[in-house]
Amino acid sequence: MNDEVIQLDRVGMIYQAASGPVEALSDISLNVRRGEFIALVGPSGCGKSTLLRIVAGLRPATRGSVKVNGAEVTKPIAAVGMVFQAAVLLRWRTILDNVLLPAELAGLDPRKYRERAFELLRLTGLEDFANKRPNELSGGMQQRASLCRALLLDPPLLLMDEPFGALDAMTRDDMNLELLRVWGESSAQRKTILFVTHSIPEAVFMADRVVVMSARPGRIAEIKPIDLPRPRTVQVRATARAGELSLDIFEKLTGRRS
């Protein structure tokens, strides 16, 4: 069995803008193991969101090879859960029906997934909101519902594009812990996660490895293994080691010695 879930080999991406071709990504090589939590950090415009969509098969790479589970990606891949910066819930549906949407889109019988949906809502503390509409929920709760939606079909791979970027700092800290818990830090069957973020401390706190990217064109500047113990707790986040790692990445990103 192949243990490399994602294999990126010298991936490049050039798109045509009004002013001519723009190189969004260049020479991206990265292998992600099963159950690994990878965080992508980098300045705006470094193509980290684009990279996520290339992995999902939603945008084609213009160079290099993209493999997921050993197969070349040529169209949107199945068995992937996606969480975006905005919760993008359907505002006319209840939270429960929003969580069930993937089953409907995939042509499965949503009634068979009600149990699973409730379980996820319970896990994220939303069980009392199952029949509410999105506009009755706070931003953090909406994002939780969006996470439940991504997890409904139990995809082995989660792609998260700045999922907590729009939340206030305290909610964000909560959501970080919650995601780690849902992910099942200590379980052997945990999912592979590709997590795009702007926040270095968040990346360090969550990830097994942090991929530091630079902009124009988007390249991998460094891949930083995070040797913090799991489970990651608030105490772990407050350690000197966590601060050191964040500082290293900060220096790498800004090119400054502080």
């Binding site: 199945a78 905005a86 889109l105």
Partner: peptide
Amino acid sequence: IDRDLLDLGRVFSAPKWKVFVKIRIPN
């Protein structure tokens, strides 16, 4: 419609009519 939402339809390879009925028309 939010592009992310349409991407969701593509990820689950939902046919065009289904995206219309479930997402576009109520929107």
